[in-house]
Design a protein around this nucleic acid. Structure first.
Lengths: 264, 264
DNA sequence: GAGTAGTGTTCAGTAGATTGAACACTCTAA
DNA sequence: TTAGAGTGTTCAATCTACTGAACACTACTC
Protein backbone atom coordinates (compact mmCIF):
# COMPACT_ATOMS: atom_id res chain seq x y z
CA UNK A 1 0.00 0.00 0.00
CA UNK A 2 2.92 2.31 0.66
CA UNK A 3 5.29 1.45 -2.17
CA UNK A 4 6.19 4.70 -3.84
CA UNK A 5 6.27 3.66 -7.47
CA UNK A 6 7.02 7.17 -8.60
CA UNK A 7 10.57 8.29 -7.83
CA UNK A 8 9.26 11.84 -7.52
CA UNK A 9 6.77 11.40 -4.74
CA UNK A 10 8.59 12.52 -1.63
CA UNK A 11 7.30 15.86 -0.40
CA UNK A 12 3.68 15.00 -1.04
CA UNK A 13 2.08 11.67 -0.26
CA UNK A 14 2.15 8.61 -2.46
CA UNK A 15 1.76 8.88 -6.21
CA UNK A 16 -1.52 10.32 -7.38
CA UNK A 17 -3.65 9.50 -10.42
CA UNK A 18 -3.22 13.16 -11.46
CA UNK A 19 -0.17 14.56 -9.68
CA UNK A 20 -0.62 18.08 -10.99
CA UNK A 21 -4.05 18.24 -9.41
CA UNK A 22 -2.83 16.89 -6.09
CA UNK A 23 -0.06 19.43 -6.10
CA UNK A 24 -2.40 22.24 -7.01
CA UNK A 25 -4.59 21.28 -4.07
CA UNK A 26 -1.51 21.33 -1.86
CA UNK A 27 -0.76 24.84 -3.07
CA UNK A 28 -4.26 25.97 -2.11
CA UNK A 29 -3.95 24.42 1.32
CA UNK A 30 -0.55 25.95 1.88
CA UNK A 31 -1.96 29.37 1.06
CA UNK A 32 -4.94 28.80 3.34
CA UNK A 33 -2.69 27.67 6.16
CA UNK A 34 -0.19 30.49 5.80
CA UNK A 35 -0.67 33.13 8.52
CA UNK A 36 -0.53 36.07 6.14
CA UNK A 37 -2.35 34.25 3.37
CA UNK A 38 0.35 35.28 0.93
CA UNK A 39 3.30 33.27 -0.32
CA UNK A 40 5.78 33.71 -3.14
CA UNK A 41 6.51 31.16 -5.80
CA UNK A 42 9.78 30.33 -4.08
CA UNK A 43 8.07 29.93 -0.70
CA UNK A 44 5.63 27.45 -2.15
CA UNK A 45 8.30 25.64 -4.10
CA UNK A 46 10.40 25.20 -0.97
CA UNK A 47 7.55 24.38 1.38
CA UNK A 48 5.95 21.77 -0.86
CA UNK A 49 9.14 20.37 -2.34
CA UNK A 50 8.04 21.12 -5.90
CA UNK A 51 10.63 22.41 -8.42
CA UNK A 52 10.29 26.10 -9.10
CA UNK A 53 9.55 25.65 -12.77
CA UNK A 54 6.75 23.23 -12.02
CA UNK A 55 5.40 25.47 -9.29
CA UNK A 56 5.37 28.32 -11.76
CA UNK A 57 3.25 26.27 -14.16
CA UNK A 58 0.84 25.28 -11.41
CA UNK A 59 0.46 28.87 -10.26
CA UNK A 60 -0.19 30.11 -13.79
CA UNK A 61 -2.90 27.51 -14.29
CA UNK A 62 -4.45 28.21 -10.90
CA UNK A 63 -4.39 31.92 -11.57
CA UNK A 64 -6.08 31.47 -14.93
CA UNK A 65 -8.83 29.54 -13.16
CA UNK A 66 -9.01 32.36 -10.60
CA UNK A 67 -8.46 29.91 -7.80
CA UNK A 68 -5.55 32.10 -6.79
CA UNK A 69 -4.53 35.71 -7.47
CA UNK A 70 -1.23 37.41 -7.94
CA UNK A 71 -0.55 40.34 -5.66
CA UNK A 72 2.73 41.75 -6.77
CA UNK A 73 5.27 38.99 -6.12
CA UNK A 74 2.93 37.12 -3.79
CA UNK A 75 0.16 34.67 -4.47
CA UNK A 76 -3.04 34.45 -2.46
CA UNK A 77 -6.27 32.50 -2.58
CA UNK A 78 -8.65 33.62 -5.34
CA UNK A 79 -12.21 34.78 -5.30
CA UNK A 80 -13.47 31.78 -7.24
CA UNK A 81 -13.11 29.83 -4.01
CA UNK A 82 -15.84 31.93 -2.42
CA UNK A 83 -18.14 31.00 -5.26
CA UNK A 84 -17.33 27.33 -5.06
CA UNK A 85 -17.68 27.26 -1.29
CA UNK A 86 -21.02 28.98 -1.60
CA UNK A 87 -22.10 26.53 -4.27
CA UNK A 88 -21.27 23.68 -1.91
CA UNK A 89 -23.30 25.23 0.90
CA UNK A 90 -26.27 26.09 -1.31
CA UNK A 91 -26.58 22.42 -2.21
CA UNK A 92 -26.72 21.36 1.41
CA UNK A 93 -30.48 21.38 1.86
CA UNK A 94 -29.88 21.12 5.56
CA UNK A 95 -28.58 24.68 5.68
CA UNK A 96 -31.72 26.08 4.11
CA UNK A 97 -33.97 24.10 6.40
CA UNK A 98 -31.84 25.14 9.36
CA UNK A 99 -32.61 28.82 8.78
CA UNK A 100 -36.32 28.23 8.34
CA UNK A 101 -36.63 26.18 11.48
CA UNK A 102 -34.69 28.62 13.65
CA UNK A 103 -36.88 31.52 12.62
CA UNK A 104 -40.05 29.89 13.83
CA UNK A 105 -38.83 27.92 16.82
CA UNK A 106 -40.22 29.33 20.11
CA UNK A 107 -36.96 29.41 22.08
CA UNK A 108 -34.22 29.09 19.46
CA UNK A 109 -35.53 31.98 17.39
CA UNK A 110 -34.18 34.32 20.05
CA UNK A 111 -30.77 32.67 20.36
CA UNK A 112 -27.55 32.28 18.42
CA UNK A 113 -27.68 28.92 16.69
CA UNK A 114 -25.12 27.28 14.41
CA UNK A 115 -24.85 24.28 12.16
CA UNK A 116 -21.45 22.68 11.75
CA UNK A 117 -19.86 19.73 10.05
CA UNK A 118 -17.18 17.30 11.16
CA UNK A 119 -13.92 17.45 9.20
CA UNK A 120 -11.32 15.11 10.66
CA UNK A 121 -10.49 16.32 14.18
CA UNK A 122 -11.98 19.75 13.48
CA UNK A 123 -15.41 21.22 13.08
CA UNK A 124 -16.38 23.67 10.32
CA UNK A 125 -19.21 26.13 10.85
CA UNK A 126 -21.59 26.14 7.90
CA UNK A 127 -24.21 28.66 8.88
CA UNK A 128 -25.22 30.83 11.77
CA UNK A 129 -28.62 32.07 12.81
CA UNK A 130 -28.48 35.17 14.99
CA UNK A 131 -31.69 35.64 16.87
CA UNK A 132 -29.93 37.40 19.69
CA UNK A 133 -27.72 40.18 18.34
CA UNK A 134 -26.23 40.85 21.77
CA UNK A 135 -24.14 37.68 21.59
CA UNK A 136 -21.69 38.48 18.80
CA UNK A 137 -19.58 35.47 18.02
CA UNK A 138 -16.01 35.73 16.95
CA UNK A 139 -16.41 32.68 14.73
CA UNK A 140 -17.48 33.17 11.14
CA UNK A 141 -18.94 30.85 8.58
CA UNK A 142 -16.28 28.47 7.34
CA UNK A 143 -14.14 28.79 10.45
CA UNK A 144 -12.52 25.68 11.89
CA UNK A 145 -12.37 24.63 15.51
CA UNK A 146 -10.70 21.62 17.17
CA UNK A 147 -13.44 19.18 18.15
CA UNK A 148 -12.38 19.07 21.79
CA UNK A 149 -12.95 22.80 22.21
CA UNK A 150 -16.60 23.14 21.28
CA UNK A 151 -19.86 21.45 22.11
CA UNK A 152 -20.68 20.55 18.50
CA UNK A 153 -17.31 18.91 18.12
CA UNK A 154 -17.88 16.78 21.17
CA UNK A 155 -21.43 15.95 20.10
CA UNK A 156 -20.13 14.76 16.73
CA UNK A 157 -17.28 12.58 17.91
CA UNK A 158 -19.47 11.08 20.62
CA UNK A 159 -21.23 9.34 17.74
CA UNK A 160 -18.07 7.66 16.48
CA UNK A 161 -16.96 4.19 17.48
CA UNK A 162 -14.64 4.00 20.47
CA UNK A 163 -11.73 2.68 18.46
CA UNK A 164 -12.00 5.65 16.06
CA UNK A 165 -11.96 8.03 18.99
CA UNK A 166 -8.97 6.19 20.43
CA UNK A 167 -7.00 6.53 17.24
CA UNK A 168 -7.84 10.23 16.96
CA UNK A 169 -7.09 10.88 20.61
CA UNK A 170 -4.67 8.24 21.95
CA UNK A 171 -4.35 8.13 25.73
CA UNK A 172 -1.81 10.63 26.98
CA UNK A 173 -2.41 13.03 24.10
CA UNK A 174 -2.49 16.70 25.06
CA UNK A 175 -5.33 18.76 23.63
CA UNK A 176 -5.19 22.38 22.46
CA UNK A 177 -6.63 24.76 25.05
CA UNK A 178 -8.15 28.23 24.91
CA UNK A 179 -9.37 28.89 28.45
CA UNK A 180 -8.77 27.50 31.92
CA UNK A 181 -11.85 25.29 31.47
CA UNK A 182 -10.70 23.71 28.19
CA UNK A 183 -10.32 19.93 28.27
CA UNK A 184 -6.61 19.21 28.56
CA UNK A 185 -6.15 15.50 27.88
CA UNK A 186 -7.58 12.71 25.78
CA UNK A 187 -8.70 11.04 29.01
CA UNK A 188 -10.78 14.03 30.09
CA UNK A 189 -12.35 14.15 26.63
CA UNK A 190 -13.27 10.48 26.68
CA UNK A 191 -14.74 10.76 30.16
CA UNK A 192 -16.92 13.60 28.98
CA UNK A 193 -17.95 11.69 25.86
CA UNK A 194 -19.50 8.97 27.97
CA UNK A 195 -21.53 11.57 29.86
CA UNK A 196 -22.61 13.10 26.55
CA UNK A 197 -23.74 9.72 25.26
CA UNK A 198 -25.77 9.20 28.40
CA UNK A 199 -27.45 12.60 28.35
CA UNK A 200 -27.96 12.72 24.58
CA UNK A 201 -26.47 16.16 24.12
CA UNK A 202 -23.10 17.86 24.49
CA UNK A 203 -22.25 20.91 26.56
CA UNK A 204 -19.46 23.40 26.88
CA UNK A 205 -18.85 25.53 29.95
CA UNK A 206 -16.53 28.42 29.08
CA UNK A 207 -14.16 25.98 27.40
CA UNK A 208 -13.43 28.13 24.36
CA UNK A 209 -14.61 31.58 25.48
CA UNK A 210 -14.93 32.90 29.00
CA UNK A 211 -18.51 33.86 29.83
CA UNK A 212 -20.06 31.70 27.14
CA UNK A 213 -21.80 28.32 27.40
CA UNK A 214 -22.95 26.04 24.57
CA UNK A 215 -25.23 23.09 24.02
CA UNK A 216 -25.09 20.82 20.99
CA UNK A 217 -26.68 17.76 19.41
CA UNK A 218 -25.68 15.65 16.41
CA UNK A 219 -27.88 15.31 13.32
CA UNK A 220 -28.63 11.61 12.78
CA UNK A 221 -27.16 10.47 9.48
CA UNK A 222 -28.89 7.06 9.12
CA UNK A 223 -25.96 5.82 7.04
CA UNK A 224 -26.40 8.29 4.19
CA UNK A 225 -23.44 9.69 2.31
CA UNK A 226 -22.60 13.28 3.13
CA UNK A 227 -20.91 14.82 6.13
CA UNK A 228 -21.98 14.37 9.75
CA UNK A 229 -23.67 17.55 10.89
CA UNK A 230 -24.25 19.01 14.30
CA UNK A 231 -26.25 21.87 15.81
CA UNK A 232 -25.34 24.17 18.68
CA UNK A 233 -26.79 27.05 20.69
CA UNK A 234 -24.60 29.63 22.31
CA UNK A 235 -25.64 31.60 25.37
CA UNK A 236 -24.10 33.97 27.87
CA UNK A 237 -23.31 32.18 31.10
CA UNK A 238 -24.57 35.17 33.08
CA UNK A 239 -28.12 34.83 31.79
CA UNK A 240 -28.23 31.08 31.24
CA UNK A 241 -30.57 28.87 33.24
CA UNK A 242 -31.16 25.14 33.47
CA UNK A 243 -34.79 25.43 32.35
CA UNK A 244 -33.84 27.48 29.32
CA UNK A 245 -31.19 24.90 28.49
CA UNK A 246 -33.72 22.09 28.61
CA UNK A 247 -36.01 23.96 26.21
CA UNK A 248 -33.19 24.66 23.79
CA UNK A 249 -32.00 21.06 23.78
CA UNK A 250 -35.56 19.94 23.09
CA UNK A 251 -35.80 22.20 20.05
CA UNK A 252 -32.31 21.37 18.85
CA UNK A 253 -33.20 17.69 18.94
CA UNK A 254 -36.40 18.31 17.02
CA UNK A 255 -34.51 20.22 14.35
CA UNK A 256 -31.85 17.52 14.22
CA UNK A 257 -34.51 14.86 13.76
CA UNK A 258 -36.15 16.74 10.91
CA UNK A 259 -32.80 17.39 9.24
CA UNK A 260 -32.03 13.69 9.53
CA UNK A 261 -35.25 12.74 7.76
CA UNK A 262 -35.00 13.92 4.14
CA UNK A 263 -38.80 13.77 3.98
CA UNK A 264 -39.06 16.79 6.26
CA UNK B 1 -2.84 34.78 -29.10
CA UNK B 2 -5.28 32.11 -30.22
CA UNK B 3 -3.03 29.58 -31.94
CA UNK B 4 -3.81 26.25 -30.35
CA UNK B 5 -0.37 24.68 -30.28
CA UNK B 6 -1.65 21.63 -28.51
CA UNK B 7 -3.68 19.29 -30.72
CA UNK B 8 -5.72 18.31 -27.69
CA UNK B 9 -7.08 21.65 -26.62
CA UNK B 10 -10.57 21.84 -28.10
CA UNK B 11 -13.22 21.61 -25.41
CA UNK B 12 -11.35 23.85 -23.01
CA UNK B 13 -9.59 27.04 -23.96
CA UNK B 14 -6.08 27.31 -25.35
CA UNK B 15 -3.29 25.16 -24.00
CA UNK B 16 -2.48 25.63 -20.35
CA UNK B 17 0.82 25.48 -18.49
CA UNK B 18 -0.70 22.68 -16.39
CA UNK B 19 -3.60 21.13 -18.30
CA UNK B 20 -4.60 18.78 -15.54
CA UNK B 21 -5.11 21.71 -13.20
CA UNK B 22 -7.12 23.69 -15.72
CA UNK B 23 -9.29 20.68 -16.32
CA UNK B 24 -9.74 20.05 -12.62
CA UNK B 25 -10.89 23.64 -12.23
CA UNK B 26 -13.34 23.09 -15.08
CA UNK B 27 -14.69 20.05 -13.27
CA UNK B 28 -15.29 22.12 -10.14
CA UNK B 29 -17.04 24.82 -12.12
CA UNK B 30 -19.19 22.31 -13.94
CA UNK B 31 -20.29 20.84 -10.62
CA UNK B 32 -20.99 24.30 -9.23
CA UNK B 33 -23.01 25.23 -12.31
CA UNK B 34 -25.01 22.04 -12.44
CA UNK B 35 -28.57 22.54 -11.14
CA UNK B 36 -28.54 19.49 -8.91
CA UNK B 37 -24.89 19.88 -7.98
CA UNK B 38 -24.28 16.24 -8.83
CA UNK B 39 -22.81 14.79 -11.99
CA UNK B 40 -21.51 11.36 -12.94
CA UNK B 41 -18.10 10.68 -14.40
CA UNK B 42 -19.70 10.21 -17.81
CA UNK B 43 -21.64 13.48 -17.53
CA UNK B 44 -18.46 15.39 -16.81
CA UNK B 45 -16.52 13.58 -19.48
CA UNK B 46 -19.14 14.43 -22.10
CA UNK B 47 -19.76 17.99 -20.96
CA UNK B 48 -16.11 18.99 -20.77
CA UNK B 49 -14.88 16.93 -23.69
CA UNK B 50 -12.37 15.04 -21.57
CA UNK B 51 -11.84 11.32 -22.16
CA UNK B 52 -13.44 9.14 -19.55
CA UNK B 53 -10.20 7.60 -18.39
CA UNK B 54 -8.65 11.03 -17.84
CA UNK B 55 -11.76 12.28 -16.12
CA UNK B 56 -11.59 9.30 -13.80
CA UNK B 57 -8.04 10.23 -12.85
CA UNK B 58 -8.97 13.84 -12.24
CA UNK B 59 -11.89 12.87 -10.07
CA UNK B 60 -9.81 10.49 -7.99
CA UNK B 61 -7.22 13.19 -7.36
CA UNK B 62 -9.88 15.78 -6.56
CA UNK B 63 -11.59 13.39 -4.22
CA UNK B 64 -8.38 12.63 -2.42
CA UNK B 65 -7.94 16.36 -1.88
CA UNK B 66 -11.54 16.51 -0.65
CA UNK B 67 -12.32 19.17 -3.22
CA UNK B 68 -15.11 16.85 -4.38
CA UNK B 69 -16.99 13.92 -2.82
CA UNK B 70 -18.42 10.76 -4.23
CA UNK B 71 -22.08 10.18 -3.54
CA UNK B 72 -22.83 6.78 -4.95
CA UNK B 73 -22.28 7.11 -8.68
CA UNK B 74 -22.39 10.91 -8.58
CA UNK B 75 -19.74 13.45 -7.77
CA UNK B 76 -20.40 16.69 -5.93
CA UNK B 77 -18.37 19.60 -4.60
CA UNK B 78 -16.41 18.79 -1.44
CA UNK B 79 -16.29 20.35 1.97
CA UNK B 80 -12.71 21.52 1.59
CA UNK B 81 -14.10 24.28 -0.63
CA UNK B 82 -15.94 25.78 2.33
CA UNK B 83 -12.68 25.96 4.22
CA UNK B 84 -10.81 27.51 1.34
CA UNK B 85 -13.55 30.02 0.65
CA UNK B 86 -13.59 30.95 4.32
CA UNK B 87 -9.81 31.29 4.32
CA UNK B 88 -10.10 33.72 1.42
CA UNK B 89 -12.71 35.80 3.22
CA UNK B 90 -10.87 35.80 6.53
CA UNK B 91 -7.89 37.39 4.81
CA UNK B 92 -9.99 40.21 3.40
CA UNK B 93 -9.53 42.73 6.18
CA UNK B 94 -12.33 44.74 4.66
CA UNK B 95 -14.87 42.15 5.75
CA UNK B 96 -13.82 42.34 9.38
CA UNK B 97 -13.86 46.13 9.36
CA UNK B 98 -17.22 46.07 7.61
CA UNK B 99 -18.85 44.24 10.52
CA UNK B 100 -17.31 46.51 13.13
CA UNK B 101 -18.40 49.68 11.39
CA UNK B 102 -21.97 48.51 10.82
CA UNK B 103 -22.45 47.66 14.46
CA UNK B 104 -21.66 51.15 15.65
CA UNK B 105 -23.03 53.26 12.80
CA UNK B 106 -26.08 55.31 13.91
CA UNK B 107 -28.35 54.51 10.96
CA UNK B 108 -26.78 51.47 9.31
CA UNK B 109 -26.67 49.46 12.54
CA UNK B 110 -30.43 49.01 12.24
CA UNK B 111 -30.43 48.03 8.58
CA UNK B 112 -29.43 45.15 6.34
CA UNK B 113 -26.04 45.96 4.85
CA UNK B 114 -23.90 43.92 2.49
CA UNK B 115 -20.42 44.01 1.09
CA UNK B 116 -19.90 42.57 -2.38
CA UNK B 117 -17.17 42.15 -4.94
CA UNK B 118 -17.15 42.49 -8.71
CA UNK B 119 -16.48 39.29 -10.62
CA UNK B 120 -16.77 39.84 -14.37
CA UNK B 121 -20.36 40.82 -15.14
CA UNK B 122 -21.58 39.47 -11.82
CA UNK B 123 -21.39 40.51 -8.21
CA UNK B 124 -20.57 38.13 -5.35
CA UNK B 125 -21.82 38.85 -1.84
CA UNK B 126 -19.03 38.50 0.72
CA UNK B 127 -20.72 39.34 3.97
CA UNK B 128 -24.01 40.53 5.33
CA UNK B 129 -24.80 42.55 8.41
CA UNK B 130 -28.36 42.12 9.60
CA UNK B 131 -29.37 44.91 11.91
CA UNK B 132 -33.00 44.61 10.90
CA UNK B 133 -34.12 41.00 11.17
CA UNK B 134 -37.48 41.80 9.60
CA UNK B 135 -35.91 42.12 6.15
CA UNK B 136 -34.83 38.56 5.45
CA UNK B 137 -32.89 38.42 2.23
CA UNK B 138 -33.04 35.50 -0.11
CA UNK B 139 -29.41 36.01 -1.06
CA UNK B 140 -26.72 34.26 0.94
CA UNK B 141 -23.03 34.84 1.30
CA UNK B 142 -21.25 33.72 -1.85
CA UNK B 143 -24.28 34.17 -4.07
CA UNK B 144 -23.86 35.70 -7.50
CA UNK B 145 -26.02 38.37 -9.14
CA UNK B 146 -25.82 39.94 -12.60
CA UNK B 147 -24.45 43.48 -12.17
CA UNK B 148 -27.41 45.08 -13.94
CA UNK B 149 -29.85 43.70 -11.40
CA UNK B 150 -28.54 45.14 -8.18
CA UNK B 151 -27.41 48.49 -6.88
CA UNK B 152 -23.92 47.29 -5.89
CA UNK B 153 -23.39 45.92 -9.36
CA UNK B 154 -24.30 49.22 -10.93
CA UNK B 155 -22.17 51.14 -8.44
CA UNK B 156 -19.18 48.99 -9.31
CA UNK B 157 -19.39 49.13 -13.08
CA UNK B 158 -20.06 52.87 -12.96
CA UNK B 159 -16.40 53.10 -11.93
CA UNK B 160 -15.13 51.34 -15.04
CA UNK B 161 -14.04 53.12 -18.20
CA UNK B 162 -16.73 53.63 -20.82
CA UNK B 163 -15.05 51.37 -23.35
CA UNK B 164 -14.96 48.53 -20.80
CA UNK B 165 -18.65 48.99 -20.12
CA UNK B 166 -19.31 49.04 -23.86
CA UNK B 167 -17.52 45.76 -24.39
CA UNK B 168 -19.36 44.14 -21.49
CA UNK B 169 -22.70 45.53 -22.58
CA UNK B 170 -22.68 46.28 -26.32
CA UNK B 171 -25.57 48.39 -27.56
CA UNK B 172 -28.61 46.32 -28.34
CA UNK B 173 -27.74 43.69 -25.74
CA UNK B 174 -30.68 42.38 -23.75
CA UNK B 175 -30.22 42.12 -20.00
CA UNK B 176 -31.55 39.40 -17.68
CA UNK B 177 -34.66 40.58 -15.80
CA UNK B 178 -36.31 39.56 -12.54
CA UNK B 179 -39.13 42.05 -12.08
CA UNK B 180 -41.07 44.52 -14.22
CA UNK B 181 -38.69 47.27 -13.05
CA UNK B 182 -35.47 45.46 -14.07
CA UNK B 183 -33.33 47.26 -16.62
CA UNK B 184 -33.95 45.60 -19.97
CA UNK B 185 -31.28 46.88 -22.34
CA UNK B 186 -27.65 47.96 -22.37
CA UNK B 187 -28.86 51.47 -23.30
CA UNK B 188 -31.03 51.76 -20.19
CA UNK B 189 -28.12 50.56 -18.07
CA UNK B 190 -25.72 53.10 -19.56
CA UNK B 191 -28.22 55.90 -19.09
CA UNK B 192 -28.54 55.00 -15.45
CA UNK B 193 -24.78 54.76 -15.04
CA UNK B 194 -24.38 58.40 -15.97
CA UNK B 195 -26.95 59.36 -13.34
CA UNK B 196 -25.10 57.21 -10.80
CA UNK B 197 -21.82 58.93 -11.60
CA UNK B 198 -23.44 62.28 -11.13
CA UNK B 199 -25.07 61.46 -7.80
CA UNK B 200 -22.15 59.44 -6.45
CA UNK B 201 -24.23 56.43 -5.42
CA UNK B 202 -26.31 53.75 -7.10
CA UNK B 203 -29.92 52.86 -6.45
CA UNK B 204 -32.32 50.05 -7.18
CA UNK B 205 -36.07 50.42 -7.14
CA UNK B 206 -37.71 46.99 -7.02
CA UNK B 207 -35.49 45.84 -9.86
CA UNK B 208 -34.64 42.45 -8.41
CA UNK B 209 -37.31 42.00 -5.73
CA UNK B 210 -40.74 43.61 -5.58
CA UNK B 211 -41.14 45.73 -2.46
CA UNK B 212 -37.42 46.19 -1.91
CA UNK B 213 -35.18 49.18 -2.61
CA UNK B 214 -31.38 49.37 -2.40
CA UNK B 215 -28.65 51.98 -2.26
CA UNK B 216 -24.98 51.29 -2.97
CA UNK B 217 -21.57 52.91 -3.18
CA UNK B 218 -18.22 51.62 -4.47
CA UNK B 219 -15.17 51.29 -2.22
CA UNK B 220 -12.34 53.36 -3.69
CA UNK B 221 -9.45 51.12 -4.68
CA UNK B 222 -6.72 53.73 -5.30
CA UNK B 223 -5.08 51.38 -7.77
CA UNK B 224 -4.29 48.63 -5.29
CA UNK B 225 -4.36 44.99 -6.23
CA UNK B 226 -7.37 43.09 -4.95
CA UNK B 227 -10.97 43.03 -6.09
CA UNK B 228 -13.21 46.07 -6.42
CA UNK B 229 -15.61 46.09 -3.51
CA UNK B 230 -18.99 47.71 -3.05
CA UNK B 231 -21.41 48.31 -0.18
CA UNK B 232 -25.20 48.27 -0.22
CA UNK B 233 -28.15 48.82 2.11
CA UNK B 234 -31.46 47.10 1.56
CA UNK B 235 -34.76 48.52 2.78
CA UNK B 236 -38.45 47.85 2.39
CA UNK B 237 -40.00 50.28 -0.07
CA UNK B 238 -43.04 50.63 2.19
CA UNK B 239 -41.05 52.16 5.04
CA UNK B 240 -38.32 53.86 3.00
CA UNK B 241 -37.98 57.65 3.03
CA UNK B 242 -35.75 60.11 1.19
CA UNK B 243 -34.25 61.46 4.42
CA UNK B 244 -33.40 57.99 5.66
CA UNK B 245 -31.81 57.25 2.29
CA UNK B 246 -29.63 60.34 2.55
CA UNK B 247 -28.42 59.29 5.99
CA UNK B 248 -27.64 55.78 4.83
CA UNK B 249 -25.72 56.98 1.79
CA UNK B 250 -23.70 59.27 4.03
CA UNK B 251 -22.71 56.40 6.30
CA UNK B 252 -22.07 54.04 3.42
CA UNK B 253 -19.70 56.57 1.91
CA UNK B 254 -17.90 57.02 5.19
CA UNK B 255 -17.44 53.27 5.54
CA UNK B 256 -16.32 53.03 1.92
CA UNK B 257 -13.74 55.75 2.50
CA UNK B 258 -12.32 54.05 5.57
CA UNK B 259 -12.20 50.68 3.79
CA UNK B 260 -10.36 52.34 0.94
CA UNK B 261 -7.71 53.75 3.28
CA UNK B 262 -5.71 50.82 4.67
CA UNK B 263 -4.65 53.08 7.54
CA UNK B 264 -8.18 52.95 8.98
C1' DG C 1 -33.08 -14.62 -20.56
C1' DA C 2 -31.16 -12.21 -24.12
C1' DG C 3 -30.50 -7.55 -25.57
C1' DT C 4 -29.42 -2.76 -24.94
C1' DA C 5 -27.76 1.41 -22.90
C1' DG C 6 -25.77 3.05 -19.51
C1' DT C 7 -22.14 3.10 -15.95
C1' DG C 8 -16.77 3.06 -14.45
C1' DT C 9 -12.26 0.50 -14.91
C1' DT C 10 -8.12 -1.35 -17.07
C1' DC C 11 -3.65 -1.13 -19.57
C1' DA C 12 0.20 -0.60 -22.88
C1' DG C 13 1.96 2.90 -26.05
C1' DT C 14 2.92 7.51 -26.99
C1' DA C 15 2.21 12.45 -26.90
C1' DG C 16 3.51 15.94 -23.93
C1' DA C 17 4.01 17.76 -19.08
C1' DT C 18 7.74 18.06 -15.95
C1' DT C 19 12.30 19.09 -14.96
C1' DG C 20 16.86 21.38 -13.60
C1' DA C 21 20.40 24.16 -14.88
C1' DA C 22 21.24 28.48 -16.70
C1' DC C 23 19.36 33.02 -17.29
C1' DA C 24 17.43 37.73 -16.33
C1' DC C 25 15.99 40.56 -13.09
C1' DT C 26 15.41 43.48 -8.56
C1' DC C 27 16.85 44.65 -4.45
C1' DT C 28 20.11 45.67 -0.36
C1' DA C 29 24.83 46.13 1.50
C1' DA C 30 29.39 47.10 1.46
C1' DT D 1 30.17 49.85 -8.48
C1' DT D 2 30.37 45.31 -7.41
C1' DA D 3 28.85 41.53 -4.97
C1' DG D 4 25.37 38.79 -3.10
C1' DA D 5 20.87 36.84 -2.07
C1' DG D 6 16.76 36.85 -3.38
C1' DT D 7 13.13 36.74 -6.92
C1' DG D 8 10.69 34.40 -11.39
C1' DT D 9 11.47 32.73 -16.27
C1' DT D 10 13.25 29.97 -20.06
C1' DC D 11 14.04 25.70 -22.84
C1' DA D 12 15.39 21.14 -24.68
C1' DA D 13 15.57 16.36 -22.99
C1' DT D 14 13.29 12.84 -20.46
C1' DC D 15 10.27 10.32 -18.13
C1' DT D 16 5.48 9.95 -17.13
C1' DA D 17 0.68 11.08 -17.29
C1' DC D 18 -2.71 10.76 -20.68
C1' DT D 19 -5.25 8.30 -24.04
C1' DG D 20 -8.56 5.09 -26.48
C1' DA D 21 -10.19 0.78 -27.26
C1' DA D 22 -11.63 -3.18 -24.97
C1' DC D 23 -13.52 -4.84 -20.75
C1' DA D 24 -16.62 -5.68 -16.68
C1' DC D 25 -20.47 -4.42 -14.49
C1' DT D 26 -25.44 -2.93 -13.38
C1' DA D 27 -30.17 -1.79 -14.69
C1' DC D 28 -33.67 -1.70 -17.60
C1' DT D 29 -36.61 -3.33 -21.58
C1' DC D 30 -38.75 -6.64 -24.30
Amino acid sequence: MADSRSPRSEGLGASSPAPAVTRAAAVLEALAASPSGRLTLSDLSRELGIPKSSTSNLLLALEEARLITRQGADFALGRKLVELGAAYLSRLDEVQEFYKYCEQAPTLSGETVRIAMLDGDHVIYLARYEGHPAVRLTSNIGDKMPVSLCSVGKALIAQLHDHDIDSMFPDGMELPTMTANSLKSAEELKAQISVIRQRGYAFEDEESTVGVVCLAVPVPTHGAHGPSLGLSVTALKATYSEEQGALMVKELKELARSLGNPMG
